[in-house]
Design a protein around this nucleic acid. Structure first.
Lengths: 251, 251
DNA sequence: CGTGGGTTTGAATTCGGTCAAGTTTCGTGG
DNA sequence: CCACGAAACTTGACCGAATTCAAACCCACG
């Protein structure tokens, strides 16, 4: 069953019709990606990409030659919300490890949003969530000390992966290298390494061999001043819905 | 005439009906703000805020006590795109200097989007633009050296203010203090000051007494590696429009 | 004429970067 | 199953950019 539906259903009520429509859209044009293969997009006709499995990241390579990661996309995430504008894609998006993405035709998507108003609502909500995450990154890379930065990013990813609280025993699969984490936090891989060691030494977490284990969730949140509120979208009361429902029913 | 319409019309064709609807929405509930007055919002019923005149910024105060500015909102800008979710507002928004904002009821806005499909398109495009700017900030505060950071921010604001190229003679009105700029760039006001002096000494710009004068636009862009492409949204060809137009016409 | 916000200057400190080397891990093919 | 090589991880010494602390300065405004 689709990760996209699962994610959207967290904050938006989706009927069976909505789910079917989303399933159709995301099964149309699925691409398998290997490590570091680019998700490219023709600026004119290019589709919207939605992660089905695996991770991806959006990055920029600066004149200095250094890579800066701007966002991570996890299963179910929508890689961009350029539904209408023929905007040139700002930054390349690349798979981390093996991944599968659905390349959804923008026109079909808009038509689906027309017929299924809840899909449109869900996309607006996701876009708002996306923006909140991006703002949180701006804070993170711009101000916090190295260990706090790492801690905050790991908290965010842990929650976005659906893991709540500590993940003591098995931990969660975590495909990022220390260099990746560094690029996402604005640190060198060397300093990233030292920061991780501090977190380890403090008994907060353990990160190795492709798995992240958080031993002291509360402690980690405190040191990172992480508050998961911005990642949870409460569904709005039904008050305003009729208006939206009405018109679409006519279509 | 509304700054909002002027901004949206840059990338989306707006008919007279659209313009009237937007005018009505933004004239309904206008608030005058003094320096630093907050744009607060009830998480449940709160309206969407749109800048009519003056500047505002979204900021966060960190445990260290330092303020970090996350976004600037200029006349015509939409402060948030939380159309459907009852999300708690992440960060406070405050006016810079005197400002006027329209507090637009979310339900009315959604109804307007229903009746005027071009308004919905315009909002999606603006949201995409907003996201691109936020990503650019993530790069800026996370990686560039102090003077480059400042330069990039000034380039962005200059373009967003509608000024193209150098603004030699009169310059543009610029209400930000060096402390504001510092908070937006992740720098202390002291270091911001030194960085500005460097830009001045290099003959790139002059920033004082509430006006920004850019003497060497090309030079400034080069040093900041600023490419205005991400700020310009090209309108999409009409190819996909019929589908959207159709349904709305029915409503 | 004083007050306070914004700006400017200087010196000491620190966090993170750079450079350079070494070690571990893991996947691949012999 | 082991040998090999590449990528990831780790460690140490040095350096530089930005912060911090402290103190003027300037100008607009009451």
């Amino acid at each position: 069953m689709g990760m996209l539906v699962r994610k959207l259903a967290r904050h938006t009520d989706l009927g069976s019709g909505d789910r079917v429509a989303l399933g159709t859209l995301t099964s149309q044009n699925v691409r398998a990606l290997r490590h570091r293969s680019l998700i490219d997009r023709d600026p004119e006709t290019g589709p919207i990409h939605i992660m089905l499995a695996g991770w991806a990241c959006r990055f920029a390579v600066l004149p200095s030659g250094r890579r800066r990661i701007l966002a991570f996309y996890l299963p179910g995430d929508i890689c961009d919300f350029d539904l209408f504008t023929a905007r040139q894609i700002d930054q390349p998006i690349a798979a981390i490890g093996a991944a599968r993405v659905a390349a959804v035709d923008r026109r079909s998507l808009r038509q689906a949003m027309t017929r299924q108003p809840q899909i449109e609502r869900a996309f607006w909500s996701e876009a708002a969530l996306d923006a909140a995450i991006q703002r949180s990154w701006t804070i993170n890379v711009g101000h916090r000390a190295a260990d706090r930065r790492l801690a905050h990013l790991l908290c965010e990813l842990h929650v976005r992966l659906g893991a709540t609280g500590a993940s003591g025993g098995a931990g969660v699969a975590f495909p990022l290298t220390q260099a990746d984490l560094g690029d996402a936090c604005g640190l060198t891989s060397i300093h990233t390494n030292r920061a991780i060691q501090e977190l380890r030494r403090a008994g907060l977490l353990d990160l190795s061999a492709g798995t992240l284990r958080i031993h002291d969730w509360a402690g980690l949140c405190t040191m990172a001043s992480f508050d998961p509120a911005y990642l949870t979208v409460a569904a709005e009361e039904a008050e305003g819905d009729e208006a939206v429902g009405e018109r679409r029913a006519a279509g």
